[in-house]
Amino acid sequence: MTTQGMYYTVATDKGFDAAVASVEEATTAQGMKVLHIHDVQATLQSKGYVVEPLKIIEICNAHYAYEVLAKDVMISLMMPCKINVFTREGQTYISALRPTILAKFFPGAGVDEIALQVDAKIRAIVDAASR
């Protein structure tokens, strides 16, 4: 497990596709919704680039989104929340950008408490999906 100020990453014994499916399931269990999944590997391969598997899973909770947007619409630049599943040298990882950085990027918006709540959900999704 790697916890940086900006991201939270956990290695998993699951294969890549199983980890992606687990993120989708864990997202629903946390009361959030998967909005879109970007298959970065497929996109880059279609342009002739060879990369290891990587999917960016965009997730959201309408209640939290409404609350932060009401405080500062510019926070939309960092929305929706993203969880990445990727492999490096045969190891699968699940990683998320930590919502707590919103409070750092928008210090006057008053989103500290909301960011902490969403951060807890995001970390719970990553942890549940990695098991």
Score class of each variant (00 low, 15 high):
Val20Pro: 04
Val20Leu: 08
Val20Met: 08
Val20Ala: 02
Ala21Ser: 12
Ala21Tyr: 08
Ala21Cys: 11
Ser22Arg: 01
Val23Leu: 04
Val23Tyr: 02
Glu24His: 11
Glu24Ala: 13
Glu25Gly: 07
Glu25Met: 05
Glu25Cys: 09
Ala26Arg: 05
Ala26Met: 02
Ala26Gln: 03
Thr27Gln: 05
Thr27Ala: 11
Thr28His: 09
Thr28Tyr: 04
Ala29Ile: 05
Ala29Gln: 12
Ala29Leu: 07
Ala29Asp: 14
Ala29Met: 10
Gln30His: 06
Gln30Ile: 01
Gln30Cys: 09
Gly31Lys: 00
Gly31Trp: 03
Gly31Leu: 04
Gly31His: 00
Met32His: 03
Met32Leu: 09
Met32Ala: 10
Lys33Val: 13
Lys33Gly: 12
Lys33Ala: 13
Lys33Glu: 14
Val34His: 06
Val34Ile: 04
Val34Arg: 00
Val34Tyr: 01
Val34Gln: 06
Leu35Pro: 02
His36Met: 13
Ile37Thr: 15
Ile37Pro: 03
Ile37Tyr: 03
His38Pro: 08
Asp39Ser: 04
Asp39Arg: 00
Asp39Lys: 08
Val40His: 01
Val40Phe: 00
Val40Asp: 03
Gln41Ile: 05
Gln41Asp: 00
Gln41Lys: 05
Gln41Glu: 07
Ala42Thr: 02
Ala42Leu: 07
Ala42Lys: 08
Ala42Arg: 07
Thr43Ala: 09
Thr43Glu: 08
Thr43Cys: 06
Thr43Pro: 03
Leu44Gln: 05
Leu44Val: 01
Gln45Ser: 15
Gln45Asn: 15
Gln45His: 12
Gln45Cys: 06
Lys47Gln: 14
Lys47Ser: 06
Lys47Met: 12
Gly48Cys: 02
Tyr49Pro: 01
Tyr49Asp: 02
Tyr49Val: 01
Val50Leu: 02
Val51Thr: 10
Val51Met: 10
Glu52Trp: 08
Glu52Ala: 08
Glu52Cys: 02
Glu52Phe: 00
Glu52Ser: 12
Glu52Thr: 01
Pro53Ser: 04
Pro53Gly: 01
Pro53Glu: 06
Leu54Ile: 11
Lys55Gln: 14
Lys55Pro: 02
Lys55Ser: 07
Lys55Thr: 07
Lys55Ala: 07
Lys55Gly: 01
Lys55Glu: 10
Ile56Thr: 08
Ile56Leu: 13
Ile56Lys: 09
Ile56Ser: 07
Ile56Phe: 03
Ile56Ala: 10
Ile57Trp: 06
Ile57Gln: 01
Ile57Ala: 04
Ile57Ser: 00
Ile57Pro: 06
Ile57His: 00
Ile59Ser: 03
Ile59Gln: 04
Cys60Lys: 03
Cys60Gly: 09
Cys60Pro: 02
Cys60Gln: 06
Asn61Ala: 10
Asn61Thr: 08
Asn61Arg: 10
Asn61Pro: 00
Asn61Ser: 10
Asn61Gln: 12
Ala62His: 12
Ala62Pro: 14
His63Cys: 10
His63Ser: 14
Tyr64Pro: 00
Tyr64Ala: 13
Tyr64Val: 09
Ala65Leu: 13
Ala65Trp: 10
Tyr66Val: 11
Tyr66Phe: 13
Glu67Gln: 15
Glu67Tyr: 11
Glu67Cys: 12
Glu67Asn: 14
Glu67Leu: 15
Val68Met: 11
Val68Asn: 08
Val68His: 05
Val68Tyr: 06
Leu69Met: 15
Leu69Lys: 04
Ala70Val: 12
Lys71Phe: 11
Lys71Gln: 15
Asp72Pro: 04
Asp72Leu: 14
Asp72Trp: 12
Val73Asn: 13
Val73Phe: 11
